Simulated assay, not measured.
Amino acid sequence: MDEKTLLNASDDEYMNAEQLAFFDLRLQQLRQETLQEIEALRAEISQARVSDVSDRATLEEEAIIAIRIADRKRQLIPKIDAARHRIRMGDYGYCTQTGEPIGIQRLLLRPTAEFSTDAKTINEKKESHYDH
């Protein structure tokens, strides 16, 4: 199954076994890629050595940025694992808040999505209301 087939599938086919297998594989690949990216960032940080003070400052700044990127990527791993758990439980593809379908297009863009677009928008509006 490919993305085009997924997008052209009827509503009756939503989250059938073949679609769930497609997303499970996509999530496995995303997890592996993410772990590889984290490891590459770690290696990049640990290998960098310079003696010049200005070069060291630049290197430290780049290391801080790399650490932030690695941390963001590390936070993705539990989301991937949770999405794969939802696949096994039969809940994947449905909003955890409303139970409505999340939609193939959204899941292709963000396979770890837990909320439908409408629920996510409402939650973000609530969060921004409480932040002020």
Rank of each mutant, 00 (worst) to 15 (best):
K79N: 15
L41Q: 04
G99T: 07
D12M: 11
P111I: 00
I104R: 11
E114T: 14
G99M: 00
I122K: 06
Q47I: 00
D71W: 05
Q19V: 02
L76S: 13
R68L: 07
E61C: 07
C95G: 07
N123S: 13
Q75N: 09
Q32V: 05
S128Y: 02
L108P: 05
G93D: 03
R42D: 09
T96K: 14
E124L: 10
I87Y: 00
V53N: 10
I102G: 01
M1P: 03
R42S: 05
S116I: 01
E13G: 06
D12P: 01
Y130M: 15
E3D: 08
L108F: 07
Q105E: 15
Y94A: 05
D12H: 12
S46T: 06
I64D: 15
L20V: 02
T117Y: 03
E33L: 11
D12L: 08
Q36E: 12
Q75P: 08
I122A: 11
E61V: 09
S51Q: 02
L6Y: 01
A83K: 08
R88E: 14
G90K: 07
I38K: 11
I45M: 02
L41F: 09
K126G: 02
E61W: 02
Y130H: 15
A17M: 11
L109F: 08
A119G: 13
L25P: 07
Q29S: 09
R86Q: 10
R110W: 10
Q75M: 04
P78L: 01
K126N: 09
I45Y: 01
R68N: 14
E60N: 15
D2C: 12
A63P: 02
N123Y: 09
L107S: 08
L20M: 10
Q47F: 01
R88T: 13
L20F: 00
E13S: 15
H85M: 06
L35C: 11
T117R: 13
I102R: 00
D52F: 02
P78S: 06
L30E: 06
A9K: 00
P78I: 03
Q32R: 08
V53E: 14
R26S: 03
G90I: 00
D11I: 07
D81P: 10
K4W: 10
N123P: 05
E127L: 09
M1D: 02
E44V: 03
Q105I: 04
Q36R: 12
N123V: 09
A9E: 05
R86E: 04
A40G: 08
